[in-house]
């Protein structure tokens, strides 16, 4: 019975949504639609928001990756919130699973290939992850993918050492310091510039590593934070006490 009702509801939703989106007349080109209005001064612009980003991001932020410029600079506050969502989830997981951790887990020898392979691969994983988050303002990627790559290295460690966890305290300290760094970089914007998260460092030479002001700093903080957070989540989900 429940399955029939569920099927009817989801098919209805599918039909309505598909019909709506297929017949919608939204402009496919951002140059033809959406000339914005500044809500405070009520000034009309003859451009749309994405056009403005594409035109000005080089001048405003110095980052060649426009998506990064939006994520970290123009809409940087969202990203602080995003980091916080992950942090909240990691904290919640630790809160729920702390009691359930066990000291002695059934001990199976991992596969030989996994064991030897991990020693070979692990340094490369860490290097690639670090590269991705350091070059977030120049190439696709950034703090989140880079941190996730590093966390995959942690996952490999957890798979190889079947009866051990990760150094929880060290991860937690890294996470805290990285998070505080991000918030502090933002708060310093109130001191050295005018607004929270406003850039106050020199923009440097376009497309060079040392450019784009606070963006690389923030992405390095995010990289450390995401790596240690995801590592902590994996550690908690494995449910083994450290050492």
């Amino acid at each position: 019975m429940r399955k029939i009702v569920a099927a009817i509801i989801s098919i209805t939703v599918f039909v309505i949504l598909t019909y709506f989106f297929i017949t919608s007349s939204a402009p496919i080109n951002y140059t033809t639609g959406g000339q914005y209005i500044n809500p405070i001064t009520h000034e009309h612009s003859n451009q749309s928001v994405p056009q403005q980003y594409l035109k000005d991001s080089k001048k405003d932020t110095g980052a060649s990756n426009v998506v990064t410029a939006i994520v970290v600079e123009y809409r940087g506050f969202d990203t602080l919130g995003e980091v916080t969502v992950l942090f909240t989830a990691a904290t919640g997981i630790a809160l729920l699973l702390d009691e359930l951790k066990r000291r002695n887990v059934p001990h199976d020898e991992p596969n030989f290939i996994v064991k030897v392979g991990s020693i070979v691969v692990l340094p490369f994983i860490v290097v690639v992850g670090t590269y991705i988050f350091i070059h977030g303002h120049l190439t696709p990627g950034g703090g989140f993918p880079g941190g996730a790559v590093i966390a995959s290295g942690f996952l490999l460690l957890l798979l190889v050492h079947t009866n051990r966890g990760l150094p929880e305290r060290k991860l937690s300290v890294t996470e805290s310091i990285a998070g505080m760094t991000y918030a502090l970089i933002g708060l310093l914007g109130l001191v050295f510039a005018h607004e929270f998260l406003e850039n106050y460092l020199p923009l440097g030479t376009f497309t060079y590593l040392f450019s784009a002001g606070i963006i690389p700093l923030i992405y390095i903080a995010i990289g450390f934070k995401v790596g240690s957070e995801l590592g902590g989540i994996l550690h908690n989900l494995k449910g083994v006490h450290e050492e």
């Binding site: 809500p39 980003y53 123009y74 940087g76 406003e198």
Partner: peptide, 15 residues
């Protein structure tokens, strides 16, 4: 009270 975050006027930045 308005505050333009990241130092960009809305809707370019977050308000």
């Amino acid at each position: 009270v308005y505050e333009q975050l990241s130092g960009f006027y809305p809707p370019i930045g977050i308000l």
